[in-house]
Amino acid sequence: MTDVQAWIAEEVKTNDMVLFMKGTPAMPMCGFSGQVVQILDYLKVPYKGINVLADDAVRQGIKEFSNWPTIPQLYVKGEFVGGCDIVREMFQAGELQDMLAEKGITAPQTA
């Protein structure tokens, strides 16, 4: 296992929800990454965004990590959920919300 694979494995293990994306949640640099950000922000669930454009090793490494050729990639509790199309389909069907609730990931209560 290369260093970058170990680093990715650690990131998805130690964070409940990780989105590997182009750009940042505040400034997505690709429409597909932006769509996933919009969905997660709409659900108000906490997640960590990792900008693959900042590091070419991560950009290539994440494709190998899950044998998935495209970015964005969403991971929940260490598990690969899917890319933009899958996340959107799941969201529209209500399955994403159910899955997050099942895994105990909820929007923080506002005061």
């Binding site: 044998n67 998935w68 959920v81 899917g82 890319g83 199309d85 899958i86 799941m90």
Partner: peptide, 8 residues
Amino acid sequence: MTRVAIHR
């Protein structure tokens, strides 16, 4: 098949 499997 799961969605991920179909896309793969």
